[in-house]
Nucleic acid binder design. Structure first.
Length: 425
RNA sequence: CGGGGUAUAGUGUAACGGUAGCACGAGUCCUUUGGGAGGAUUUAGUCUCGGUUCGAAUCCGAGUACCCCGACCA
């Protein structure tokens, strides 16, 4: 609550407004709803600004991810986006077209970070000399840039996007394997906490040039751009890109009864092995006194994509339905009429909720009809709507309605405990 | 990058090659107040450049932007 300015909490002061209609150039559901509700603005194809409401959601997601990364010993760092050509020549990845490249006025080449192995490997190398320094884990949450041939689907594939990347460094393969499984678990926790748990499944995918496999976390939704072959029994999937190689069977039970589903890749984890330590000659002295290559893993989650995915999964005709954990606010308090009586009661409730550490978007004094306020609330999608009006005040009550339910309920105005009881989600 | 589509006011949409209109929004006033209310009034627009034509939002060419399909996607 402390980090939110008063202006954001009062809807009359919030500088963004809702739009009644979707923009004609926005076809994807997530960007349509996010733009209409005032969470994001599109600067150009694949590049979005995060407005007050959207930034709050992004920060909620970031907090969840940060907590889970810290739990598995991640140390948060902040890395440069502007990167010198030389590092990328070492790994022979300067030629990759996905990287935005630019020159300074002296003609020196730079690339914008689309991933950070070329920065973090030599960085950690400066400090890690012995097996005693291993394993170690560092992560960053930053904007990355990818010169996609075609950005699309709103937040699902941007050319500038927010991403968390965790990098792990190990003395041996067993340690890498052990940690890899640990991250897998943490990832499930993250997607669970973000409200995607029921739709997100581990998926076997191509490991690129350095590993037979990688694991993706795929959220099943009708508008996903990936295709996976899903085993209902084992709750595991195989990405279409390697299904033939996997002989069209479930990697677990070997069943061939796989369902073809559209899905969104919300996370991807890789065992990098010595792919990057080798070109940088990142070695350490092991217990046996021998010099060995450090083994690495990398683990990514696109936060902005995750935000878009949440909407693809949680919405209805009227708008967004935020899971409680990533909603911009806990309550949307609507003061239906602007009479003195209603105003005083609503303000008091607002303060009371704040005192109890709830985050509240307070539709305080806008001269709008009830229908419009309700429509705005449905579009914005805060989990619980509270209405204070002449009608509810006749019973000294506040009306409570959950965004994902139809029923409304009246509760005594001054009993926060009762309100809490009623909103148990 | 290949293919397709679109471009008119802040937003959405009309206008045969011949006066750029409507709705929403925004401003002012009045009436309203439990699901985008009503009336009056104001505001604001043809993506850019070039061509055809007496005359172009409309036809032609180029450019740009955006969207979609595909390819690509650590």
């Amino acid at each position: 609550t402390k980090i939110i300015s008063k202006e954001i909490m009062l809807q009359s002061k919030l500088f963004t407004k809702t739009f009644r209609e979707a923009l004609k150039d926005e076809k994807s559901l997530n960007s349509q709803l996010l733009i209409r509700a005032g969470f994001v603005d599109k600067l150009m194809a694949g590049v979005y600004s995060f407005l007050p409401l959207g930034f709050l959601v992004l920060k909620k997601i970031e907090k969840i991810i940060r907590e889970e990364m810290n739990k598995i010993s991640g140390q948060e760092i902040f890395l440069p986006t502007l990167q010198p050509r030389e590092k990328w020549e070492i790994t022979k990845r300067w030629k990759i077209e996905e990287m935005f490249k630019l020159k300074n006025h002296q003609g020196k080449d730079f690339g914008l970070g689309w991933t950070h192995e070329e920065v973090i490997t030599p960085l950690v190398q400066k400090f890690v000399k012995s097996y005693k320094d291993l394993p170690t884990f560092a992560y960053q949450i930053q904007n990355k840039f990818r010169d996609e041939l075609r950005s699309k689907s709103g937040l699902l594939r941007g050319i500038e996007f927010l991403m968390k990347d965790l990098y792990s460094f190990h003395a041996n393969e067993q340690d890498l394997d052990r940690y890899y499984e640990k991250v897998k678990k943490a990832y499930f926790t993250i997607f669970q906490r973000c409200g995607l748990g029921d739709h997100t499944f581990l998926t076997l995918a191509s490991g690129g040039s350095f590993s037979p496999y990688s694991h993706e976390f795929q959220t099943i939704t009708p508008f996903g751009e990936d295709t996976i072959y899903f085993c209902q029994k084992c709750k595991i999937a195989v990405n279409k890109e390697i299904i033939t190689r996997e002989k069209n069977q479930c990697p677990n039970c070997k069943s061939k009864k796989l369902e073809i589903k559209k899905s969104i890749e919300v996370g991807n984890i890789f065992k990098l092995q010595d792919k990057f330590s080798k070109p940088f000659n990142f070695t350490f002295i092991d217990k046996d006194g021998k010099r060995k290559l450090v083994l690495m893993g990398c683990y990514g989650i696109g936060l902005s994509r995750l935000m878009g995915t949440v909407i693809e999964v949680h919405h209805d005709k009227k708008g967004i339905i935020w899971p409680k954990s990533v909603a911009p606010f806990d309550f949307h308090l609507i003061q239906l009429e602007n009479s003195k009586k209603v105003k005083i009661a609503a303000e008091k409730l607002h303060q009371n909720l704040q005192k109890n550490n709830y985050e509240v978007l307070y539709d305080d004094r806008r001269e709008k009809t009830a229908g419009e306020k309700f429509a705005d609330a449905d579009l914005i999608g805060i989990p619980v709507r509270l209405v204070v009006s002449e009608r509810t005040l006749e019973k000294m009550s506040v009306e409570i309605k959950k965004r994902n339910e139809k029923e409304v309920k009246l509760t005594k105005l001054n009993k926060i405990k009762d309100i809490e009881q009623d909103i148990k989600l």
